[in-house]
Write a protein that binds this DNA or RNA. Structure first.
Lengths: 112, 112
DNA sequence: TAAATATGGATCATAGAAAGACCATAAAAC
DNA sequence: GTTTTATGGTCTTTCTATGATCCATATTTA
């Protein structure tokens, strides 16, 4: 076997993903929609949704975010501390937020 | 071209990933470590770190969480509202958290 | 200034994630 | 009870994200 690349994950990453998945599943159950329906709405397969809800770390983050957004589990809520805490300090991030579009001074340095 | 499956993402997912990547980059700059060094520590390539910092949604969530944890950008902080808010309501999630390990009543229904 | 280092981006091969079946069991609905 | 329906898991194929390597441009250091 030619060097299979087994990635290691920290405890924190595993816990975070597991909890995030559990939140999604809980929200889905409260909404009373089936796994198949949620998967369809997110544009993913039911199998992938299963892995997301189990906290599998080898899922693309886009799929996870989509599912989470649909059922209403959002990491980044406008009035939530997790993000806003970090937000008020820097200027770099302003270019990223949809609301405040800054005009660049001279050349294009940001590629977002 | 035989039907490439182009996935679509919601506005929210794109913004969340972009902001998350920006937070990582900001934290890395404040720590004054190079992209290569952070990538090495996370066990990923520099190219992947670049994409994470740019908010690319097609990255595995495990890699994103690892990087975030290293530089100290944590979605799920113990005393942070984003997670704890949802946490105090359900019992299902308790099996997931490292601290509170419940003993199952009879058979093994949970596979975590 | 020049030399060294860091970053952005592009290309390519491949390990592996995702889709799409499948089946078995579990849970609802009847 | 029976009949749907939902879920968990496995397997195979398709597709793509990742790592590696390259180069160009910034940025830093001497």
């Amino acid at each position: 076997m030619p060097t299979s690349i087994t990635r290691t994950y920290s405890r924190y990453s595993r816990d975070a993903a597991a909890l995030f998945g559990a939140l999604i599943r809980q929200a889905r159950n409260e909404l009373k929609i089936t796994a198949q329906e949620l998967a369809d709405r997110a544009g993913i397969s039911r199998g992938l949704l299963q892995r997301i809800e189990k906290g599998n770390l080898k899922c693309e983050i886009g799929a996870v975010f989509e599912v989470a957004a649909i059922v209403g589990v959002k990491l980044f809520d406008a009035n939530d501390s997790t993000m806003t805490k970090h937000l008020h300090q820097t200027k770099e991030k302003l270019t990223l937020l949809p609301k405040s579009v800054r005009k660049k001074s001279k050349a294009v340095h940001d590629d977002f």
